[in-house]
Amino acid sequence: MEDYNFAYLDEQTKRMIRRAILKGVAVPGYQVPFASREMPMPYGWGTGGVQVTAACLVPEDVLKVIDQGADDTTNAVSIRKFFSRTAGVAVTEATTDATVIQTRHRIPETPLQEGQILVYQVPIPEPLRFLEPRETETRKMHELEEYGLMHVKLYEDIARHGQIATSYAYPVKVEGRYVMDPSPIPKFDNPKLSGSAALQLFGAGREQRIYAVPPYTQVVSLDFDDHPFVASKADHDCDLCGAGASYLDEVIIDDAGGRMFVCSDTDFCAGRRAAGHVGRLGEAA
């Protein structure tokens, strides 16, 4: 595409984002402010992730975009097409073929490899925001490593529900220092944050923050000794591919209470079916 600079953003903007990414990598889990630009899509559709991806892309990249695990939903399709046109990069739906994966609210089931970059779209980057609305205060809390309020919140979950009811955007502590919002991924995905071989970058466009988890970095989900963290999922197997350990979406299939559970990661599910696995409602390939 001749009408735009490579990867859409101008060079001055990319330099500014690149400097923020590097500082984010140097201080894992700390939210680096950046001068987020208006993008040709509304806030809430991944403007932060798109800017991080634009700053990272090289022409040789193979880009995968997922929305809640799926490659074929509106958000994923439009962002993939956007970079296909403005950066000329190859695109794929296969996790193993991708060099850069932009994601909304899931980590792929297939373990990530060295050399891959996972870019998260983040709506609210501040894990303490719903507990303390003032930025001046949350900044001071991060500065002083004062995270007691977050433990009170988890404790109140237990007092009210008998267990920690937070099921997505479950707070984590990175390298024993910063408490971080992993974006609204299901807590089922939290263990994959820690010690990943891939570099993980987080972009929040409306809130103007970038943060990072370098490869092989310790990420611990907050919990209590007597209420340890549990990476929960629906207690079923995938009805299409039969997978017992992948994160599932519940789909209503009729008006008589019928439902099915399917893998949220479409590439993972399709790969298993192609390999001959068949679930309860699946058809043999």
């Binding site: 990867a7 590097l22 700053a55 990272c56 090289v58 370098p214 490869p215």
Partner: peptide, 19 residues
């Protein structure tokens, strides 16, 4: 060719700093 060459350079620098 600044847009493409600086993109490759940044990826190399990002790779180096994150590993």
């Amino acid at each position: 060719d600044a847009p493409v060459q600086s993109a490759r350079a940044f990826r190399a620098a990002l790779d180096a700093l994150s590993r």
